[in-house]
Write a protein that binds this DNA or RNA. Structure first.
Lengths: 127, 127
DNA sequence: ACTAGCGTTGACACAGGCGTCAAGGTTTAC
DNA sequence: GTAAACCTTGACGCCTGTGTCAACGCTAGT
């Protein structure tokens, strides 16, 4: 299949597919007229990339998964490189969540305080 | 005080201060030679901006706080605009935390599954 | 008078994953 | 034969808060 069809099937754009190729994640054969030619295995690669990007991985992080799939494995996650990325991401997520929760507490406290102050101002105006 | 001193006291750079001014968050008087001249109230403004940026607010979000302080209030948070931003941010944070926790569960499951698969592969090689 | 260290404005650079346009070649359908 | 709908590469734009450099002016100390 050609790039437009692959993009459609994978739910993305031709621009994105060329971008992945430019970064070594996708390799296309070329037909005699220079058009890129893809098959089902490429569709699986792109779907793997897309689903990882969707949950917040960056392109570089998807590389081990792509290579894992290309090496013939059934899933992209079962290779050491992928497992390492997953572990790192889990730790990243925990750190990120903890930071956001700390910020949430700060904002919540600030909000409660501000509302209180504002109410006090209001009551002084009314009285 | 001049811009370098203010930057130092506020723990930021002259570049950042000029940027805030460019976006209408900071207004400097000018001395006869064209130098910006600041006072203590400007320092408080900059500190407010910095602390909000640090917890993940963007510059636009700091505007109500700055205007609140400039209107003579004791804190930047006690004006309606600031309170509204705080409320929005709290909701944003909740949404963000929930999404990250959902992603965390996905990654955790994926990781457990991948490790299991890898172990199975390993055992098959050993046996 | 000269240097060091401040200040001024203007402008480019970055990160990341594309969107989008330009200028052209190919193929297909009518 | 020509228009529509593909494809190609190349390159700029975006967004955000600065870092950094250029080229220049002011001021203080020696």
């Amino acid at each position: 299949m050609r790039i437009g069809e692959l993009a459609e099937l994978a739910g993305t754009s031709t621009r994105a597919l060329r971008y992945y190729e430019q970064h070594g994640l996708l390799a296309a054969r070329r037909t005699s007229n220079g058009y890129r030619e893809y098959d089902e295995s490429d569709l699986r690669l792109v779907r793997e990339i897309r689903s990882l990007l969707e949950i917040g991985f960056n392109l570089e992080d998807t590389r081990p998964f792509v290579e894992c799939l290309r090496s013939g494995r059934a899933t992209g996650a079962e290779c050491p490189g992928s497992i390492e990325v997953l572990g790192r991401k889990l730790a990243d997520l925990d750190g990120c969540i903890a930071r956001l929760q700390a910020v949430r507490r700060v904002v919540e406290r600030e909000l409660a305080h501000a509302v209180e102050e504002a109410a006090e101002l209001e009551s002084r105006i009314v009285s």
